[in-house]
Amino acid sequence: MKVYNHPVLLPEVWLHWDHQTVRERGTQALLRSRMDFLLMLPHGQRIVLEVDGSQHYTRDRGQRPDSAKYAETMAGDRDLKLRGYDVFRFGHDELRDETAARVLLEQFLPALFRRLNVSAGTD
């Protein structure tokens, strides 16, 4: 069997890091363990890509800044980083326009692959 060393992009991945059930801990227990996208790269490299709307840093439907919500988001990033994931966040507005999003990602992904020594070769 041939193994390919190509990147794999998975949308909406849940990382269940805790053996306790949601019933025991409540529905909020695993919220910080949801990733918008998980990019799995050769050699076990794991990259989390998050797209943040205002719900990550505001309350009242985006009307008022909420430092506690922002702190929760940052705590989730730290937890993922300690588990071996690199986390990269994009603001919703950066990706709203398709053309601008394409330009951004066409710059970001090759730069990321260079940093992590991921080749663009085919197997």
Rank of each mutant, 00 (worst) to 15 (best):
S67N: 05
V103N: 02
D60C: 09
A68T: 11
L82V: 12
Y70P: 00
A111L: 01
G91T: 01
Q55N: 14
Q20F: 03
F108P: 00
S119P: 00
F37Y: 13
E106F: 10
P11Y: 06
R23K: 15
M35S: 01
A29F: 06
T21I: 12
L41A: 05
Y4A: 13
P110S: 04
L49K: 01
E72V: 03
Q107P: 00
L31G: 02
L39P: 03
I47K: 02
R89S: 02
P11D: 05
A120C: 11
D123W: 10
D18Y: 10
R102M: 07
E98K: 13
G26F: 01
Q55A: 14
R46N: 09
A111E: 03
L116E: 06
E72I: 06
L38P: 00
T99N: 10
R25H: 07
L104N: 01
D66K: 00
H6F: 15
G44Q: 09
L116N: 07
D79I: 14
W14A: 11
L31V: 04
R59N: 05
F90Q: 06
A111W: 04
A75I: 08
R89F: 04
R34H: 08
H19S: 15
L112M: 07
G121F: 09
M1F: 09
Q20L: 07
D66N: 03
R115V: 05
G91A: 14
D79G: 07
V87R: 00
K69A: 01
L95E: 00
F113K: 01
L30R: 09
G121L: 15
L9T: 02
A101D: 01
A100N: 10
